[in-house]
Amino acid sequence: MPTPAQRSRSFRKRRVATPGGKINIHYTKKKPAVPKCGSCGKRLHGVPRALPSDVKKLPKSRKRPERPYGGNLCPECARQKIRIKNMERWEND
Protein backbone atom coordinates (compact mmCIF):
# COMPACT_ATOMS: atom_id res chain seq x y z
CA MET A 1 0.00 0.00 0.00
CA PRO A 2 1.21 3.50 -0.70
CA THR A 3 1.43 6.02 2.09
CA PRO A 4 -1.75 8.07 2.39
CA ALA A 5 -0.03 11.13 0.98
CA GLN A 6 0.76 9.23 -2.20
CA ARG A 7 -2.84 8.05 -2.70
CA SER A 8 -3.57 11.02 -4.91
CA ARG A 9 -4.13 11.65 -8.59
CA SER A 10 -1.22 14.06 -8.70
CA PHE A 11 1.09 11.05 -8.38
CA ARG A 12 2.19 8.86 -11.23
CA LYS A 13 2.73 5.10 -10.86
CA ARG A 14 6.06 3.81 -12.07
CA ARG A 15 6.70 0.08 -12.36
CA VAL A 16 10.21 -0.84 -11.21
CA ALA A 17 11.71 -4.32 -11.67
CA THR A 18 13.57 -5.37 -8.53
CA PRO A 19 16.61 -7.68 -8.50
CA GLY A 20 14.45 -10.41 -6.93
CA GLY A 21 12.25 -10.57 -10.03
CA LYS A 22 9.34 -8.70 -8.47
CA ILE A 23 7.75 -5.63 -9.93
CA ASN A 24 7.31 -2.86 -7.40
CA ILE A 25 5.35 0.30 -7.85
CA HIS A 26 7.02 3.63 -7.20
CA TYR A 27 4.99 6.78 -6.83
CA THR A 28 6.41 9.94 -8.39
CA LYS A 29 5.00 13.45 -8.66
CA LYS A 30 3.49 14.27 -12.05
CA LYS A 31 5.14 16.90 -14.23
CA PRO A 32 3.31 20.19 -14.75
CA ALA A 33 1.77 21.04 -18.14
CA VAL A 34 3.92 22.04 -21.11
CA PRO A 35 4.52 25.80 -21.27
CA LYS A 36 2.66 27.32 -24.22
CA CYS A 37 2.49 30.63 -26.03
CA GLY A 38 -0.14 32.95 -24.55
CA SER A 39 -1.56 34.03 -27.87
CA CYS A 40 -1.12 31.16 -30.36
CA GLY A 41 -0.73 28.14 -28.04
CA LYS A 42 2.51 26.95 -29.58
CA ARG A 43 4.90 24.97 -27.37
CA LEU A 44 7.59 27.23 -25.90
CA HIS A 45 11.28 26.39 -26.07
CA GLY A 46 13.75 27.38 -23.40
CA VAL A 47 11.26 27.05 -20.55
CA PRO A 48 11.86 24.10 -18.21
CA ARG A 49 9.05 21.61 -17.63
CA ALA A 50 9.74 20.81 -14.02
CA LEU A 51 8.17 21.13 -10.60
CA PRO A 52 8.06 24.68 -9.25
CA SER A 53 10.45 23.71 -6.47
CA ASP A 54 13.02 22.58 -9.05
CA VAL A 55 12.48 25.59 -11.29
CA LYS A 56 13.16 27.85 -8.31
CA LYS A 57 16.66 26.44 -8.00
CA LEU A 58 17.59 27.39 -11.58
CA PRO A 59 19.27 30.66 -12.48
CA LYS A 60 17.03 33.31 -14.02
CA SER A 61 18.54 32.97 -17.48
CA ARG A 62 17.60 29.27 -17.64
CA LYS A 63 13.97 29.85 -16.73
CA ARG A 64 12.97 31.76 -19.86
CA PRO A 65 14.44 33.27 -23.05
CA GLU A 66 16.03 36.66 -22.39
CA ARG A 67 13.72 38.67 -24.60
CA PRO A 68 10.66 40.85 -23.93
CA TYR A 69 7.69 38.49 -23.41
CA GLY A 70 10.22 35.63 -23.04
CA GLY A 71 8.55 32.59 -21.47
CA ASN A 72 5.07 34.00 -22.15
CA LEU A 73 4.87 34.45 -25.91
CA CYS A 74 6.53 32.55 -28.75
CA PRO A 75 9.16 34.55 -30.68
CA GLU A 76 6.84 35.15 -33.65
CA CYS A 77 4.04 36.56 -31.49
CA ALA A 78 6.52 38.65 -29.47
CA ARG A 79 7.91 40.12 -32.70
CA GLN A 80 4.40 41.02 -33.84
CA LYS A 81 3.56 42.61 -30.51
CA ILE A 82 6.72 44.74 -30.48
CA ARG A 83 5.96 45.86 -34.04
CA ILE A 84 2.36 46.83 -33.23
CA LYS A 85 3.47 48.68 -30.09
CA ASN A 86 6.01 50.63 -32.11
CA MET A 87 3.39 51.57 -34.72
CA GLU A 88 0.86 52.65 -32.07
CA ARG A 89 3.45 54.81 -30.36
CA TRP A 90 4.03 57.00 -33.42
CA GLU A 91 0.43 57.12 -34.63
CA ASN A 92 -0.25 60.66 -33.38
CA ASP A 93 2.93 62.17 -34.83
Binding site: E66, R67, P68, A78, R79, I82, R83, K85
Partner: peptide, 11 residues
Protein backbone atom coordinates in the same frame (compact mmCIF):
# COMPACT_ATOMS: atom_id res chain seq x y z
CA UNK B 1 14.61 51.75 -35.53
CA UNK B 2 13.33 49.23 -32.98
CA UNK B 3 14.90 45.78 -32.85
CA UNK B 4 12.22 43.08 -32.87
CA UNK B 5 14.26 39.90 -32.42
CA UNK B 6 16.69 38.56 -29.86
CA UNK B 7 17.73 39.80 -26.46
CA UNK B 8 17.87 43.36 -27.81
CA UNK B 9 14.23 43.16 -28.91
CA UNK B 10 12.14 46.22 -28.12
CA UNK B 11 15.20 48.47 -27.94
Amino acid sequence: CVKTVGREAGK
